[in-house]
Write a protein that binds this DNA or RNA. Structure first.
Lengths: 210, 210
DNA sequence: TGTTTTTTGTTATTATTATAACAGTCAAAA
DNA sequence: TTTTGACTGTTATAATAATAACAAAAAACA
């Protein structure tokens, strides 16, 4: 009868992870919800409540052990496993992701890259050669892929998503400015970059009113 | 006594904008909150309530005129103005943004680019030459810049933010995985890309439990 | 032209999320 | 050891956000 964790909480987990990583690099050993609150900007109460959704990781009179908590959060997030990824759409953004060391070296190997543009097909990035997008379905049949990354233009996004789903991916990391329709056993994580610029602009132009 | 618009609403505005743009391209003239609800996935009630924060754009028995509403939302977002931008950090991601036609052609001219890497300093992208980051403060003194884009590594992000603020930018579009400290008259829009991958992974690994 | 249907704007209600409060536990100090 | 103070885990309360309901208005139809 484990209660469903709300999206708000799930979206804060990577934030905790980030701050804990920084704290580890500062060689801090432990931290109270109160101190963490000052850094991270959430209330101490919220921090304690968030963490308690997953277990009692702290200790009264001591706080939280940073290294242990970091490990727990990684485990909660599912980062103790490897996720094999393919990139569809090898433009500037696709290449930026492909070149991001953190991904291909730490649990997120990019094992295939696809595009329809003859100019990039054949290109080699970190020992992976960009293939024709027509090969995508076959590739997915032959290789277990966990996450498909969509960095195509928006018009192609749903079609690619369909092929990725058909090929059995468990998640889609979508950078195209289109919301995707997928079966409910597949998760989508959107990065609607332009949306964030638009809401930033809203805040800029309404900042005086407050 | 205009009530403060919540972040939840502000973050949905770009979504409305995106769907309305698509509808315009489909040459649809009008839409009811109910039909829009089916497309966009928010409840009709929420759509009506969101829009009514800004004015009565619809008409009983008719719905919303798409072209007019699109224009209204652009105006609400502040997209009827121009925002001059600089990019700090011209790696893969910075270049991807610099090359994005939509930005430099539609209200978001990129007028300066900066890096510390001698290999990219001097590089020309869309007629803008990458300068040494040491020139940033001087450049900001001489040119009105509205938005600074941070695409550096996380360690440099806060220092760049300080210089951007000092140089008078109104907003910072931050792609570095660090939360920034800025005065309250400056807005920050974060794109914590890796956070979205982490929460996607959470959802993937917990999808069966539901 | 009158009637029915559609659909909004807006208020009321419910659900969700965040904050506050506090008893109980552990660590550190005396 | 014993006591004090520092914290968590957890429940209670408040704030916020989403949904539902509905009267009023306009459009469509007869």
């Amino acid at each position: 009868m484990k209660a469903k964790i709300s999206d708000a909480v799930v979206n804060r987990l990577p934030v905790y992870r980030r701050y804990l990583e920084d704290l580890m690099h500062e060689d801090v050993e432990r931290i109270s919800s109160n101190e963490l609150s000052k850094r991270i900007g959430f209330t101490a109460s919220q921090i304690r409540q968030d963490l308690n959704n997953f277990g009692g990781f702290g200790q009264q009179g001591y706080g939280y052990n940073i290294r242990a908590l970091y490990k727990e959060i990684n485990s909660i997030l599912g980062l103790d496993q490897e996720y094999r990824m393919v990139i569809v759409g090898v433009g500037n953004l696709g290449q930026a992701i492909a070149n991001h060391t953190k991904y291909y070296k730490n649990g997120f190997p990019i094992i295939g890259m696809f595009d329809i543009n003859p100019k990039v097909i054949g290109l080699r990035i970190n020992d992976v050669v960009v293939q024709d997008a027509d090969n995508l379905v076959d590739f997915l049949k032959e290789n277990k892929v966990d996450i498909g990354i969509i960095t195509t233009e928006k018009e192609a996004a749903q079609g690619i998503a369909d092929r990725l789903v058909q090929g059995g991916v468990r998640g889609i990391w979508n950078f195209a400015p289109r919301d995707l329709v997928v079966p409910k056993n597949v998760s989508v994580g959107n990065v609607h970059v332009t949306d964030t610029l638009n809401s930033l602009v809203y805040r800029i132009s309404h900042i005086e009113e407050e």
